[in-house]
Design a protein around this nucleic acid. Sequence first.
DNA 1: CTAAAACCCTGTAGCCGCTCCAGGGTCAAG
DNA 2: CTTGACCCTGGAGCGGCTACAGGGTTTTAG
Lengths: 155, 155
Amino acid sequence: MRIGELGKAAGVDGETIRYYERAGLLPTPARTHNGYRAYGVAHLERLAFIRHCRALDVPLAEIRRLLDFVDRPDADCGDIDRLIEAQLTRVRARLKSMRALEKQLAALRSRCEAGHVAAECGILHELVAAAHGEACACHASAPDSAAGARAAKRR
Amino acid sequence: MRIGELGKAAGVDGETIRYYERAGLLPTPARTHNGYRAYGVAHLERLAFIRHCRALDVPLAEIRRLLDFVDRPDADCGDIDRLIEAQLTRVRARLKSMRALEKQLAALRSRCEAGHVAAECGILHELVAAAHGEACACHASAPDSAAGARAAKRR
DNA sequence: CTAAAACCCTGTAGCCGCTCCAGGGTCAAG
DNA sequence: CTTGACCCTGGAGCGGCTACAGGGTTTTAG
């Protein structure tokens, strides 16, 4: 299998496959006489595994650790447990801040009716009000807006 | 006001302020005799505005556009409307895929009880099963798992 | 048979939004 | 007079790709 075929089979761009190889996630494949990468079924499996984990938003570093488990089937499995648990915790935290975000944006949007001029735009007014530390439709109180900013940062 | 004070007032790191300046979001401030940046209230306002938008996960490029509106109060406001609408759409799409993600991870977690060895780990089995294109606790059917991957990519 | 299109290779740079570092200067307190 | 807190510039690094440039090879169409 050449890189294009493998890519098509796994739904991944060829450049990304080469990137995974450089990153040490995919073993270096054999080469044909002309230097093209030659992949086997094992590679496709491993690549599908990686994509599946990425679909779960698992970072590449942790995928590397998971792949280690795949390669050493006699290792203790508690670590896998904890890894998934940690990922779930991350995702839930992010979900929470995203839900708050949606509310804030929805509130903002309702402030503006089209056809205005910027000076009278409710959205802009709200955003500028935040700059004065006033309570606004987005953030209940000023000190908390800073906390929101911090929450958004630490995804 | 020096950069440290400004940073404290707005809850932003000094390095980030300099970054915003380089990025063209904050106007270049005056300098004191020794070369230190000297900020006024206008800078604090503008910085707070930026942080507020960032808390709403608005990209810097769009914040730049919003700041243009702040500076030109006679412009048409429909664009602001559309900008917030687009941001809301982005956030909602991301929310949707995150919710799916949470479900998948929760399902995965329930597959494993501690004390096992990797070879018998339900989580690992599920993840490997995906590599074979089988239906798994995470993804109802194989073809859709590729779609999930694509959705996760395009945040 | 040939020319064009489609694939492959390597290596490097860019994206976002910061964050951190090295290697220096400046200033107030103890 | 030293210590420590602050400030400066310029550059590199993060993650997870993506997009070149500048070459080579293979496949397909005419």
